[in-house]
Simulated assay, not measured.
Amino acid sequence: MNRRTTALTAAVALAASLALTGCSSDGDKPELKVSGAFMPQPVMDMAGGFLTITNGSGAADKLTSVTSPISDDVTIHETKDQKMVEVKSFDIPANGELKLERGGNHIMFMELKTKPKQGDKVSIELHFEKSDPIKVDVPVEAANHNPQQH
């Protein structure tokens, strides 16, 4: 009887831990949405990219890289003391947002393979520490476009 109770208790404990693991992993997955994306029309062979990533969950994430067919050299930068500094990642806080905007944190596209014009769309893919990649078609706006000034 004792062996049977122990086996049953172990089975119930294992089933409960599997159920809890399944439930908590769904709750720990960030829910990311991208909005406001744009690229000012480049005037040289490099361009900036700007967008907002909103996290609607209680789990934080990180933007770790950006890729695009328009450039083999796409990096993420922060602006500190009016100087651009390449970074390895940007935090996306739980129930918060990451804003990439002119004069602040942004995406840099170096050595453009083609120069997109206003009205074009540039395909990018955002890569994260926890979340699946997100593909975004980024509209190309006028070189002086700045939604903060509107």
Rank of each mutant, 00 (worst) to 15 (best):
N2W: 03
A7F: 09
L8G: 04
A10P: 00
A11N: 03
A11G: 05
V12I: 15
V12M: 11
A15L: 15
A16L: 14
S17Y: 04
L18Y: 10
A19E: 12
L20C: 11
C23A: 14
P30L: 05
E31M: 07
K33S: 14
V34K: 04
S35Q: 02
S35G: 01
G36L: 04
G36Y: 05
F38R: 11
M39P: 05
P42T: 07
P42G: 06
M46T: 14
I53V: 15
T54M: 00
A59F: 09
A60N: 07
S68R: 05
P69G: 13
D72Q: 11
V74A: 14
V74M: 13
T75L: 10
H77G: 09
K80D: 13
D81K: 14
M84W: 06
V85S: 06
E86N: 01
E86M: 06
K88G: 04
S89I: 00
I92P: 03
A94K: 11
A94E: 07
G96K: 10
E101Q: 14
R102P: 06
R102G: 09
N105K: 14
I107F: 07
I107H: 08
M108K: 13
M108F: 12
K113A: 10
Q118L: 03
K121A: 12
V122G: 07
L126F: 06
E129I: 02
S131K: 03
D132Y: 05
V136D: 03
V136E: 03
V138N: 07
V138H: 08
N144L: 05
H145G: 07
